[in-house]
Design a protein around this nucleic acid. Structure first.
Length: 190
DNA sequence: GTTCTAGAAC
DNA sequence: GTTCTAGAAC
C-alpha cells in the first residue's frame, strides 16, 4: 500500500474515522439514555428536534441493509422501545425511522419529535433526510423485513433528487424560501 | 455526520 | 454589503 499522508496520520495518531462516531457515543455515559441487554439508546449529539434519540443494537450490524429475517425480533424490540419512549413524552408527537442513506456506521433508529425545532438543524439535507422518503418509517422497515427478509437500497438518482428537493413544512403546506424562513415558520407550530 | 468558507443569491 | 448555500476536508 502506498504511504499517503492520510495513512501516516492514521499510524502516528490513530484516530477513529468520523463514520464511527455513533459507536463511540454508545460508550459515552453522558449520552446514554437507557440500555438493555441487546440495545443502547443515546441522545443525538446534534439533535434536529426538541427530542431526538437514537436506538442502536449492541451487535455490530452496520445498517438496515444488513438486516435479515433473523433480525425481526431485534427490530420488534426497537418498536417496543419506541412505544415506551412515546409514553415517557406524552406532550410530544414522536416519529421513529431510519435514514435511507445513513452517514454513520452501526444500525440506528431515530426517535425524533415532529417539531423539528433545534439550532442543530441547519441544512436542506438535514430537513429532507427527515421529512421526505429519505426517512424510512419504522413500521415500513419492519413490514419490508418481514415480507422480503431484507431492506432494498434506494436508487442513487432518487437519493440525489430527494436530498435537493424543495423545502416544505412537515406540518402544513407552507413552502419556505430558505432554511432560516423554515425555522422561523416552525416556531408557529409549537 | 460537522466545520469551514467561497461565492451565489439576495 | 449581508445572508445563505453547497462542496471540500491530504
Amino acid at each position: 500500500m502506498p504511504m499517503t499522508k492520510e495513512n501516516q496520520n492514521e499510524i502516528s495518531k490513530p484516530k477513529k474515522h468520523w463514520t464511527m462516531a455513533l459507536v463511540e457515543s454508545m460508550k459515552d455515559a453522558e449520552l446514554i439514555y437507557k440500555d438493555t441487554e441487546r440495545i443502547v439508546i443515546i441522545r443525538d449529539k446534534y439533535p434536529k428536534a426538541k427530542i431526538h434519540l437514537l436506538v442502536l443494537p449492541k451487535d455490530n450490524i452496520n445498517s438496515i441493509y444488513k438486516l435479515t429475517s433473523k433480525d425481526v425480533a431485534l427490530l420488534e424490540e426497537f418498536g417496543e422501545i419506541f412505544k415506551l419512549i412515546q409514553k415517557e413524552h406524552k406532550n410530544h408527537l414522536l416519529n421513529a425511522g431510519f435514514h435511507a442513506v445513513p452517514s454513520m456506521q452501526r444500525l440506528h433508529m431515530h426517535i425524533i419529535s415532529k417539531d423539528m425545532v433545534s439550532p442543530c438543524l441547519k441544512t436542506k439535507v438535514h430537513w429532507n433526510s427527515f421529512t421526505t422518503a429519505l426517512f424510512k418509517p419504522y413500521n415500513d422497515v419492519l413490514a419490508e423485513l418481514k415480507q422480503y427478509g431484507a431492506i432494498k437500497e434506494i436508487a442513487h438518482d432518487i437519493y440525489k433528487t430527494l436530498k435537493t428537493t424543495p423545502l416544505k413544512c412537515n406540518q402544513c403546506s407552507y413552502i419556505p424560501k430558505n432554511i432560516p424562513q423554515l425555522k422561523e415558520h416552525l416556531l408557529s407550530h409549537l
